[in-house]
Amino acid sequence: MSDPLPGPESLVRPPAPAVQSGEIGRMQPSDEELVHRFQGGDESAFEAMVARWNEPILQLATRLTGDLEEAKDVRQMALLKTYRGLTRFEGRARFSTWIYRVVLNLCRDKQRSEAARTRLVEGSLRERDSDYVLEETGFHRARDRELAEIVARAVLELPASEREVLVLRHYHDMPFPAIAEVLGSPVTTVKSRMARGLELLRTRLATLET
């Protein structure tokens, strides 16, 4: 296969930083710069990291656990782990790779048993309607909601290995080589999991309109 490995900078697209008043036009420091500042005793660097990573962490955990409250627990633990671990962070891997790996591991711990996952899927879709933010305009509202729930359920019911790859690729816009780095798997494995995940989804969603 002739797919080139992208350069280090293009592996992970960092989340869009929140623009605050007075910061427009100013260069945002990289994650590694923020880590360095934190290690030098600058607590505000941690606040900047939370501002940057809070939303991606919560989104990833929500899509892997299927439950907003579980996702908030994961977010809390991931940020605590980050705060405790930053002083020892040596930069052998990029910070983005490291934090995604932490979140994935925490989500896996949360869902060790298949039974627990099935229970979460059912609970999250039937009882926690407000956890899914949907377009609520016009008479399409009910249909949109139903469609979103079916898609969410289909993704959540994928096997974990396929679900992780699909969520990182589709919802976090992460290229296959970057996913391979996070998972510690070969790129070919990541690609075949993606293909299998899409194939399973295609079958389950075959009757729906786009």
């Binding site: 949109d144 979103a148 898609v151 969410a152 993704v155 589709h170 969603l205």
Partner: peptide, 11 residues
């Protein structure tokens, strides 16, 4: 399938 995936928005 890719377009359908966009339907699931997180809070």
């Amino acid at each position: 399938t890719r377009r359908l995936l966009d339907r699931w928005e997180t809070p």
